[in-house]
Amino acid sequence: MQNKKLVFGSLLAILVLFIGFTFFYQNEQKSEQTAKVEDVNSLLVRDYSFRMGDNTKNISVVEFLDPECESCAIYSQVVKKLYREYYKDIQIVVKYLDNHKNSRLTIQMLEAARVQGKYEDVLNMMFEKHPLWASHYSSVDKPELLWQFLKEIPSLDIEKLKEDMKNPKIDEIIAQDRKDAETLGVRGTPTLYVNGVLLERLSDKALFDLVEKEIYK
């Protein structure tokens, strides 16, 4: 119960910060999106990128995220809502931008969990438990708690996950995604694109409007 109260209280507090971040996001992304890229989609969707959705309408919603990012944790609720409503039409694609102290560790966990088909479970856990292990608002820095939370995921083999985390291909993925972000002028997370078009405002309506424009065009 105490943990639930802490999660709720922390999320409520950082909601105010998120509103401020949204304003910053609009201006920052407009100024940073200066790179001349001939084929944006080739940078956004790589062969190795995690993706989900039936994608019958050939619509890619690409998100640069950082599992340690508080704004990513909050906005994940919007992305989940979008996926629930349009999973048949679209695909969600994940790209990484490791901007925080423990970002690389969390990405290694995610990619190792992916081998066991537990990627979504682990990402959801990281975002839902975020205030307990990585709240920047409350100066929480307890990545070691992630190991405890991982044990709560059914059928996840922790020992195998630890071994798979050592795969050097994960570092290659992180490096390539950062290179792609730099080419596109992306510096912060979450940053989203819909079929190569930058989402200029982090809101429920803005994302749904952009996706629905592609679905019904």
Rank of each mutant, 00 (worst) to 15 (best):
M1W: 01
K4L: 13
K4C: 07
L6Q: 09
F8P: 00
F8V: 14
F18H: 15
E28L: 14
S31G: 04
E32D: 12
V37Q: 04
V37L: 13
S42R: 11
L44K: 03
L44E: 04
L44R: 05
R46T: 02
F50W: 12
M52D: 06
T56G: 02
S60Y: 07
V61C: 11
F64L: 06
L65P: 01
S71F: 14
S71R: 07
I74S: 05
K80T: 10
K81G: 07
Y83E: 09
Y83N: 12
E85D: 10
V94Y: 11
K95E: 01
D98H: 01
L105H: 07
L110G: 02
Q116T: 06
G117C: 06
Y119T: 05
D121I: 02
L123C: 04
K129D: 11
H130F: 04
P131W: 02
S135V: 07
Y137L: 15
Y137Q: 11
V140D: 07
L145R: 14
L146Q: 09
F149Y: 15
F149V: 06
E152L: 11
D157M: 05
I158R: 10
K160H: 04
E163S: 13
I173Y: 09
I173W: 06
I173P: 00
A175M: 10
D177I: 00
A181K: 02
A181G: 12
A181C: 12
E182Y: 04
T189N: 06
L192V: 08
N195D: 10
L198Y: 00
L199Y: 03
L199R: 10
R201C: 06
L202W: 08
S203I: 08
D209Q: 15
V211W: 01
E212C: 09
I215N: 06
K217G: 10
